[in-house]
């Protein structure tokens, strides 16, 4: 990517963000109820998007060549287990990352 393309990419991210933040204030006045389908999508969408983002993070993992996705699998499971055990967001993220780094640097 050239610098111009990078600037455009960042600009588009900012533009999309601002669109999602400003749109409700531009479209709805505070005494009018938003449409039902919008409200429904608003409640249902986050779960699906978070799922998509997890898959997005793991998109480069190859199951057919060496390491076979094992470090990622162990990393993912550690994050889940540590999080279910302590329910401390930062602890789960930090320890999961460290475990994964140890795995890819020293084990696999």
């Amino acid at each position: 990517m050239t610098l111009t393309q990078q600037i455009i990419t960042i600009g588009l991210c900012a533009l999309a963000t601002m669109l999602t933040r400003f749109l409700p204030f531009l479209v709805f006045s505070s005494d009018k109820e938003p449409p039902k389908f919008i409200k429904y999508i608003g409640k249902a969408l986050p779960g699906a998007i978070f799922g998509m983002l997890v898959v997005y993070c793991l998109k480069g993992v190859s199951l057919t060549s060496y390491s076979y996705g094992l470090p990622e699998l162990i990393g993912v499971l550690s994050v889940i287990l540590i999080h279910l055990w302590k329910r401390k967001m930062l602890l789960s993220i930090a320890s999961g990352t460290v475990i994964y780094m140890i795995l890819v640097q020293l084990v696999f």
Partner: peptide, 15 residues
């Protein structure tokens, strides 16, 4: 492997 910080973050949010 530091990029796993992003994966961990989204797993926690998802969870």
């Amino acid at each position: 492997g530091i990029d796993f910080v992003m994966t961990s973050m989204f797993i926690v949010i998802f969870l």
